[in-house]
């Protein structure tokens, strides 16, 4: 399990913003924490999967995709800020995210 520092929070936010700006071909200034991933950016599960892979590699995470899948059914993500929050929980808890409420 990783400790979430301010540096990690900043990195995760930057990566998520840059990823969607690049992938969805929008100016990064048009993305905010309240941006809806599906409605505003036309995001989908492959983008979510790619972001998870980016963070797994960057932070050397031990987590199964299906654990994230089960967690996200209970805790669906709609906005950029919710996605960032979920990525931080994944980094912090890895496979133990399954034990969170």
């Amino acid at each position: 399990m990783g400790q979430i520092t301010d540096q990690i929070r900043k990195e995760v936010k930057e990566i998520v913003y840059e990823y969607f700006a690049d992938e969805c071909e929008v100016d990064i200034s048009e993305i905010s924490d309240q941006t809806s991933i599906i409605k505003d950016l036309d995001g989908d599960s492959l983008m979510f999967l790619e972001l998870i892979e980016i963070f797994k590699e960057k932070y050397d995470l031990d987590i199964e995709l299906k654990t994230i899948g089960k967690y996200s059914v209970k805790n669906p993500v709609a906005t950029i800020s919710e996605l960032i929050q979920m990525q931080l929980l994944i980094i912090e808890h890895e496979n133990n995210i399954a034990n969170l409420d």
Binding site: L49, L65, K66, I68, G69, K70, S72
Partner: peptide, 8 residues
């Protein structure tokens, strides 16, 4: 599959 944890 969804119940098993598929992302989509």
């Amino acid at each position: 599959a969804k119940n098993e944890g598929a992302l989509n």
